[in-house]
Design a binder for these strands. Structure first.
Lengths: 352, 352
DNA sequence: TTGTATGCGTTATCAC
DNA sequence: GTGATAACGCATACAA
C-alpha cells in the first residue's frame, strides 16, 4: 500500500491532467486526447472531460507539453528595440500572423548590438522555440553557429541576404536608398548630405550609407561625401532636429539633407517650421522608411516607404509554413517585400 | 545488459546535460551545479564542465528546467497593441527592467478587447509565467478567477484600481483628465468637445470620457456634453485629422477639441496647419499621454504627460521584488506614477 | 565536493 | 475508443 504522498515544495499545486482524469473517471491519456484530438474520442467522453476541465479549473502546463512533444509553440523575436515604430509594427504584424496558430511570441531586444543579439539568442534558444525571427541579416559567427545547431526555421528580416541562414523576408536597403537618390538627383540636387545614426550593429543603416556614398561617387564625383552622425538615445524627432541644425551650420552649401529614417526627417521638418526655415526652398529633406508622420507634416516628406507590418506578417506566415505540420515542413524562402518611392513636397526641382 | 536505445522521434536530438556530463566525466548533477551554483563545485571541475559545454555546444533546455524547478523565468505581458507608442515604450521599459534578471518577455495583444484578454491570458497561463503584467485594471470575471487561481504576482498598469488583483503601477486617468480640464477652463474655454476612440475594452479612454463629462457637468452645466467618436483602425494621425474635421463641421460653436490621445491631437494640429486653420485662435486643441510628437508640432500641444516607459520599468522592478527569491516574496504594492500637466501653445486665454 | 534516486506534467507508443 | 507505460531533460532531496 502506497502512503499518501506529501505535496513537495516542487509541485505547483495546480490542477493536473491526472486530477481532471480522476474527476472525469477516465485516464489521463483520454483527457489529453479530448483536448487535442477530440475526433479520436467519443463525443460523450469529450463532453464529460470538458465538464471536468471547467469544474477543476484545469490549465494545461505547456512546459510539460513541450518537453513531451518537443514542440514549444513559441516563436522568438529579436529586434533592436520595441520603441522604434517600424519594429513595433513588425511585431504587431507577426503577432497577428502567428497567434491564430497558437504560437506565442517571445520578445528580446538587442539595442542594435550584435553581441547583445548573440547573448539574447543563446538564452532564447534554451526555450527551444519552434522558430526565430531576427531583424537583420548580419550576425556574429557564434550566433550563426547557434542558429545552425538549433535546427529550427529562422527568418531574417529587414534586408536581403546573399548567404541567408534559412529564410529571408526583407528588401534591399541599398536599392531603396539608390532609388531615392535617383529621384533627387533627377530633380537637380547636387550637394546632398546624409544624416542619421550609424551604430555598428545597425547594418541596415550602414547599407543605406554605403548606397549614399556609392551613389554620390557615381553621380556627382566632384562633390564631397558628407555624412552627419549623432550618437545618443534621445527621441528620434529631437535627433532629427539637432542633425538638421548641425547640417545648416556646418554644411551651409548643402542643398539637401537625406535622413536615414523618416522619424529624423520629420523632426527636421517640424523644427524647420518652427524656425522659419523654408523646406524645400532653403534646403531639401528626404527620409527613409515610410513612417506615417511623414505624410502628415508640411511639406509632406519625400521618402521610400517600407511595409513594416507586412514584413512581420509575411515572416509569420513564412515561419508557420516552414515549421510545417505532421511531418511535412516547408522549404526556405526569400521574400522581397520591396519598397515604394514616395515623392513628397520636401524636395523640389532645382535650377541647375 | 541494456540494449542501446534507438533515438526516438520524440527526442530533440540536441545536446543534453547527460552528454555534457559524459564528456566531462562527471555526473549530470555536477554539470547542473557548475552552471547554476559554481561556488558549490571545485574550480577544476567547473573549468572542465565549462569546457565540455563549449565543446558540445550545449544549450540548457529551459522547459525541462522549468518543469523540474517550477520556475519559468518568463513574464507574460498583455497589451492592447504593440503599435501604439505608449505600449511599445512600456514594453521597452519592462524589458530593460527584467532582462538583467534573466526573465524573458512573452507578449500578447488584446486589441482593446477584454474577451481577447481572457483568451490570451488563459493560453499564457499554460506557460506558468513567474509573473504577469496587464494593461488596465478592468478584466472579465473569468480573467480575475484565472489570475487568482494562478497564484502568481500580477501587475495591473495604466490605471489605479480600487480592487486590485495584486499590485498596481499606474495613475488616475480621471484625475489627469480633470487636471487638464481645470487648466483649460481656467483659461476661459467654455464649449469644449471630446474626441477620440472609445472601444468598450479601452477602460482608460472611458475613464477620461467620464472625467470630461463629469467636469463639464460641474463647471459648465449649461453647455452640451459633446463627444465625437471614430471607429476604425487607420493611423492615429489620420483619425485625429478626421475627427478634427468632423468637429469643425458638426460643432462649429466649439472653442476647444480635447483629444483622448496625443497622437490624435497631433494629427489634428498637422491637419490644421495644412488647411490654414489657426490653432489656438480658431479652435483650441489638447491631447493626452505625452507623445513625443506633441512637443515638436507647432503650436506645441497642451497635454497631460504620462511616463509610459517608467510604467514598464517600475512594473518590472515591482514584479521582480514581488516574485522574490529564496523563499522570500515581496508584498503587493500600488505605485502611482502620476501625470504632468504640459501647458503648450495649442490653447490660449480666451476673452470671456 | 560529488553522486544516486526520484519527480515535475505531459505526450508518444503500443496494447487492448 | 481507451488505457498503461515509458520517455522528455532537468533540479530537488538526500546520501556518500
Amino acid at each position: 500500500m502506497t502512503a499518501k504522498r506529501v505535496p513537495s515544495r516542487r509541485s505547483t499545486r495546480s490542477v493536473t491532467l491526472a486530477e481532471v482524469a480522476a474527476h472525469a473517471g477516465v485516464s489521463a491519456q483520454t483527457v489529453s486526447r479530448a483536448i487535442r484530438q477530440p475526433s479520436l474520442v467519443s463525443e460523450a467522453t469529450v463532453e464529460r472531460v470538458l465538464a471536468s476541465i471547467r469544474a477543476t479549473g484545469y490549465v494545461p502546463n505547456l512546459a510539460a507539453s513541450h518537453l513531451a512533444s518537443n514542440r514549444s509553440n513559441a516563436i522568438a523575436v529579436l529586434i533592436p528595440t520595441v520603441s522604434a515604430s517600424v519594429f513595433a509594427d513588425m511585431v504587431q504584424g507577426l503577432d497577428q500572423a502567428v497567434s491564430p496558430g497558437g504560437y506565442h511570441l517571445l520578445i528580446g531586444t538587442t539595442g542594435y548590438r550584435l553581441d547583445r543579439e548573440e547573448e539574447v539568442l543563446r538564452a532564447f534558444l534554451g526555450r527551444r522555440p519552434d522558430g526565430i525571427v531576427l531583424a537583420g541579416t548580419v550576425h556574429t559567427e557564434a550566433s550563426r553557429e547557434l542558429l545552425a545547431a538549433a535546427r529550427i526555421p529562422v527568418i531574417e528580416t529587414w534586408e536581403l541576404a546573399q548567404d541567408p541562414v534559412d529564410s529571408v523576408v526583407g528588401f534591399s536597403n541599398h536599392d531603396a536608398m539608390s532609388a531615392l537618390m535617383d529621384h533627387v538627383c533627377g530633380l537637380g540636387y547636387r550637394r546632398p548630405v546624409l544624416a542619421g545614426q550609424f551604430p555598428p550593429g545597425d547594418v541596415r543603416a550602414l547599407r543605406r550609407r554605403a548606397a549614399f556614398e556609392g551613389g554620390m561617387a557615381r553621380r556627382v564625383p566632384e562633390a564631397p561625401r558628407r555624412v552627419f552622425e549623432m550618437a545618443g538615445e534621445s527621441s528620434s524627432l529631437a535627433i532629427g532636429a539637432d542633425l538638421f541644425e548641425r547640417v545648416r551650420r556646418e554644411a551651409p552649401d548643402a542643398d539637401l539633407v537625406m535622413f536615414t529614417s523618416d522619424a529624423f526627417a520629420a523632426g527636421a521638418i517640424l523644427s524647420a517650421n518652427r524656425q522659419g526655415v523654408r523646406v524645400p526652398h532653403d534646403l531639401g529633406i528626404t527620409g527613409f522608411g515610410g513612417y506615417d508622420l511623414g505624410a502628415h507634416v508640411s511639406p509632406q516628406l519625400t521618402t521610400v516607404s517600407v511595409p513594416s507590418a507586412a514584413i512581420g506578417e509575411r515572416a509569420g506566415h513564412a515561419l508557420i509554413e516552414r515549421i510545417g505540420a505532421n511531418g511535412r515542413t516547408g522549404e526556405p524562402v526569400t521574400i522581397d517585400v520591396g519598397y515604394t518611392l514616395v515623392p513628397g513636397e520636401s524636395v523640389a526641382r532645382r535650377q541647375g
